[in-house]
Amino acid sequence: MTVQEGFVPVTGGKVWYQIHDTGVNRTPVIVLHGGPGSSHYAMQGLRILAENRPVIFYDQLGCGKSERPTNQSLWRIDRFVEEFAQIRKALSLDEVHILGHSWGTTLAAAYMLTNPTGVKSVIFSSPCLSAPRWAEDQKRNREHLPEEVQAVLAECEEAGTTDSEAYKKATAEFNKRFVCRMDPMPEFLKEGAQYKNPEIYNIMWGPSEFHVTGNLKDFDCTSRLKEISVPTLYTCGRFDEATPESTEYFSSLTPNSKFHVFENSAHMPYLEEREEFVRVVNEFLTGVDESKL
């Protein structure tokens, strides 16, 4: 396998990218990581997909190995859509599959609604395509937490103390159930924290997964999912904060789509059920390439 990496100039700074290629002449897949303000770090295991096609990772501006400008006006979805288009052009990705995870699906959907050419398929992994619906789903998920944990979350949010240790500890209880159910949590995930940019997350989303106060709080593209006509795969974990109910609903609104639930996962099936995730993704992408879908 050859690994090529470098930087692409985009609006606001330079973005780091990495291409894994085993020489298989198939349409490449580009991975849009979660966040906002996370990085490709947790998803790097998906380089195994390069056994069947080139795989491209990049760290969105402001996080990972990309430049970290301090201009807060850069942290809005329209600029990230523009950034993605600039990366495709710079890397000559005339034809491409898109695999977005979590916030990466928000970005993928917003990008698809600009009517780009050359996108052969889209995978929405644990999608967030409606921030209001996401917030409602998390309200219900929180009801499954112990009452004392629910009380801490509510008190801190009301008092504006979401940066307190008590809130972080209560949030960790939510994460164990609905973000990653691996116990113990993989050590390498903790190491990945250094690549995140909490400022971007807070500006665009809010203080936690379930308390949406940022500039994405009104994002909702469900009424336009019918415009995405390429083959589309929706996936989520059975215990995902991107709930099976909402994920299946998004799929029902998308004309040429399939839906798959990973039965033993929360929000990170690509780690929690890695072999099964890779199998499902490969099967879908190969089917599109061979025009079986």
Rank of each mutant, 00 (worst) to 15 (best):
L32Q: 03
R177I: 08
S257A: 15
G214P: 05
L129N: 07
V278S: 04
T22G: 08
N175C: 08
A109W: 03
E187K: 02
T235H: 11
M182K: 07
F57Q: 07
P207H: 06
S102W: 04
S125Y: 07
F262V: 08
P132V: 10
E275Y: 03
Y195W: 13
F124S: 05
L145S: 04
L61A: 09
Y111K: 10
A242S: 15
E173N: 07
N52I: 01
S257I: 05
V31D: 00
F7Q: 10
A110M: 13
T243C: 02
T222Y: 04
E272A: 10
D183V: 08
R88D: 00
T70N: 10
G214V: 09
A85M: 00
P244D: 06
E209S: 05
Y234F: 15
T235F: 06
T213W: 12
E95D: 11
E165K: 14
R26N: 15
T114F: 12
I19Y: 01
R279M: 11
I228V: 14
V10F: 03
F178Q: 10
Y270W: 15
Y41F: 15
R142M: 15
K139T: 08
S291T: 11
V288D: 12
A193Q: 12
A42L: 13
P231K: 14
R279C: 05
E290A: 12
H40N: 09
R76F: 00
K196F: 12
V281K: 06
D59R: 06
